[in-house]
Design a binder for these strands. Sequence first.
DNA 1: CTAGGGATCAGCT
DNA 2: GCTGATCCCTAGC
Length: 275
Amino acid sequence: MTEVDTAASVPVSAGRAAVAGLLPREFFDRPSDQVAPSLLGCVLEHESADGIVAVALTEVEAYAGQADPASHAYRGRTERNAVMFGPPGHAYVYFTYGMHFCMNVVCLPAGTASAVLLRAGQVVEGEELAMRRRAGPPRGSQEASAAGEAATRDLARGPARLCQALAIDKALYGADLCAEASPLRLRAPLGGPSGRERGTGIAAPASGLPLPAGTGSGERTLICAGPRVGIREGADVPWRFWLDGDPTVSAYRPYARRQRQPPAVRPDGPHGAPR
DNA sequence: CTAGGGATCAGCT
DNA sequence: GCTGATCCCTAGC
C-alpha cells in the first residue's frame, strides 16, 4: 500500500524530537465510525501562550449527524453546530452543563455533519501545565504527590477534563486540526507500528458489534467498542471506542434520567406527583 | 448518590 | 419575544 500520512515526511523541526506528522484532511473525510477507532493513539496538541499540552487519545465516540438521534446535528444546522456541516478536520467545541466544554472532530465533506467526540486521553506532553489547569489555583503542598499517579491518570480522563487539561474552549471552535499553523492539531501515533493502518484507507471495524481487536493487522493494543456514554437515544449502536485496559479510559455511565423539577411546593400542596 | 451551572432549542404567546 | 426541559459532565458527599 501507499505510505500515506506517517511521520515519514516530517522533518525534525524546532527542537522537538521525532514528532509524528499531522493527520491529513482525507483521514477525516470518512464516516465517523471509521474515523473514531483510527483516532485512538493519535495525539491531540494545543499550543497556547502558556505552552503545549498534548494527549494520546484513548477513548472516542462516533456521532452520525442527521441520521443519529444522539447527535447535536440531528435536527439540522443551527448556529451552535454549524461547523459540523463544514469541511472535515476541524474542531467542534461546545459548552454544556453550565461549566464544561467538550470537543469533537468533524468528519465527512461539507454538507454532512458527522463527528467524533474525544472522550479521554493520556497526557504525553506538558503534564505540569495540564495539572495546573486542572488543579485551578495553587493549593496544597507535597502530600498531593502521593496521589500523583491517580491525578496524572485523571488529567484528561473524560471529555470535559480533556478539554480543561488542554485549555480547549469556544475560542477554538472551528479550529483546523490539519494545519501546522493552527494552535490545535492532531498527529499520527508517535511510535506505533500502526501509523500506516491508521491512515486513510484501511479496514475499518466491520461495523459488527463486538469489534474484534486492532484494526486489521497485528495490532498490539486492542480496540474495544460498546455503547456510547450518557445518551438517551441511540444507545443501541456500539460507537464508543477505547483502548482495552487503558487506565485513562473513563468509566462507562449509562443514561441516567435527570431528576425532575425540584419539588416546587405548590400552594395547595402536592397533588398527583407526575412521577 | 446529587447539585451545580449556563447555553440551547422547541414550543409557545 | 418568553419558558422550561434538556444536556455527548464532574466534583464532592
